[in-house]
Design a protein around this nucleic acid. Structure first.
Lengths: 207, 207, 207, 207
DNA sequence: GATGAATGAGTCTTCATTCAT
DNA sequence: CATGAATGAAGACTCATTCAT
């Protein structure tokens, strides 16, 4: 969390209300497509009152993005360097899939931003995100050297995990259209599928 | 194609110029974020002239989308029902990856649209796209019954192929930020990775 | 002063703080260009607190203007009807020049107001100010009749004194730009200049 | 004039209409006090149409200022270095007074800008204006050395001329209030006054 | 076919002022 | 006395679309 000034209870509540409304609107329409009006209405506040809490539309957006990036990376940080490689990575896949199920708006917020070239978050991608991914990749490579993980490019492994899990949040409109599914049963099927999929890919070849 | 009137050569050329410019702009900024001005400037035409060829901004957008959907599905149609299952699917993966490399704007155009709930293309998703995917799934299931393909959910297999291949186009900003790569070498690494990945997943278990 | 209610010490102090801050802000940006926020911040008070002491932005402005008008006219009142005409008027010129040096904000406050048509101070111009100027003019005319002052239009003499002395406050941005002067040395040169200038103009022609 | 692009007749006409309306509004209310609405209404155009011709409110303002600065300095340039000093300077005073009578809006536009610290025209003051004034001052000093002009500081002489003549435009609200004059007769009295005034100041002392 | 000109409907933002405590 | 919170009204600017030639 990025709380700087001391905040009264009402301030904290309203800032959170606004950020939640903004998550709704930005994740559905992207930055340019979203309007302050929508955010204010969703938040149940007047437009100027929203701007009382955040200096500008852009300020809301960046507050959202940076506030969420941390949360977004937690599952990756939670991989235990001393654990069993295949299990650790499979658990990571499941955590990511869970996040797509539980926080689809957050996923789409990032998706929108990145598809459009990440104009407002490139710094954080090239900084903290890259560092974390690089460290994790080093760990994966060690596991492979130790014969406990298949020979596999660690960066692209991570990309594939992101792609396959976030896909269920980011492209849910398409998935629901094809599966004719209103509910979330397909997440369970997806979990089985990905379990099978990644286990085969990760287990080191015998000999 | 939805072109009814007979067209002079110049009309055809201008329509294509506009659609190409629109692809540039829409894929980078999404529907709301794009402006007719940008499209007209990119196309080298005046704004009213652009609207002479297309009734509205929305008309350009939907013309683009439906014009491209066909092309987008071609690789899936190209799977040979009488071919060798694993080879056929791996070839499909490679064709999709090639499209991400060759037509990243098209990929991002769809990504933008679908992330935002596919408001203008849901019909085509629930119609032709679903049909094609369902047919292909039936084929996959037959292959599995015949013991020539691993036991794997065909819909989610298709989703995973879309996710892993399109990811290189749709999230290229993130990938380039992490790999610090300006060029396209990572597509070759990705090809190797996906080849390994999907081969392991698709080959049926012995016995 | 237009203060009716009895005031505590703290009230008096705050009113003065506000007026001083308002002088800063109004003289630099004019009425429309100034904001309550700027005034409140400059005064070190909260915006509602400022409005606790003055009913409105306009009230602050008019309180300032009328509070200062008196001070502004003092030098003119100080001309001694029984003094030596040329000396008296020269002394008046010097007092006015001193005020431009010492109270440039006040001068610019009036300048702003009058350049924009004096919408909020016209009454006082057509009332007390006109009266005072007319009286002084009568005195000047008497001095001319008595052969102790050159034949010169008294109103325009007063205008010229206002113009030449206030110019150093009101147009100081221009003067500093041309003289490339940060300090106030030019006020001394100006004093010499005006002394020479007005002495020649005021001394009655011999015969 | 600062015409860059080729302009159609209608463009030229509308740009001029807008600049004239803007002169009205800016000279009366200053930059911040003026609204695009007022300018558009005065010009008889819609607000967006005004912005079709000028990129922004500020663009209109600076176009006005720089377009007028040249005109504003013409009378100073017209002083003939080979003429009779006192006559030349007196003629300059009269030209300046005429401009105050004929172009009071222009005068007030500059006055507003400079009183508020010349934020948008300081460059031109410290550049072309300073140069011209410095050259003229050198000429005045030469005339004094040649015994054809009184010993007088040339910069402050120029300031006094600006002050006394522009005063009739910039502070006309005050002057009209005091003289109870609706017309322009006072300009004739002012001309006589300034003639007397400056002649006495400029004629070199005998011997 | 093509374009300069024009505009209505937004969209973000500012700001004086009010409300509640 | 003082202030955090809230807002209506206005203001600058954008943009898809239409008009007229």
């Amino acid at each position: 969390m990025t709380i700087q000034q001391p905040q009264t209870r009402i301030q904290k509540k309203n800032r959170e209300t606004i950020l939640d409304a903004a998550l709704d609107v930005f994740s559905e329409h992207g930055f340019r497509g979203a309007t302050l009006d929508q955010i204010a209405t969703t938040a149940g506040l007047s437009k100027p009152n929203v701007l009382y809490y955040f200096a500008s539309k852009e300020a809301i957006y960046t507050a959202l993005l940076s506030g969420l990036l941390e949360t977004w990376l937690d599952p990756l940080r939670a991989i235990d360097p001393d654990g069993e490689p295949v299990d650790e990575i499979l658990a990571y896949v499941m955590r990511k899939l869970d996040m797509s199920r539980t926080f689809p708006r957050e996923s789409r917020l990032f998706a929108n931003e990145i598809v459009q070239g990440a104009p407002r978050i490139l710094d954080q991608i090239e900084g903290p995100l890259k560092s974390l991914v690089d460290e994790t990749s080093t760990m994966f490579r060690r596991w492979t050297r130790e014969g406990r993980l298949a020979e596999i490019d660690p960066h692209h492994l991570i990309f594939s995990i992101w792609a396959t899990t976030q896909h269920y949040a980011d492209f849910s409109a398409q998935i629901r259209g094809i599966l004719r599914s209103e509910g979330e049963e397909h997440f369970d099927v997806a979990a089985d599928f990905l379990e099978h999929f990644y286990r085969r890919a990760l287990v080191p070849s015998p000999g």
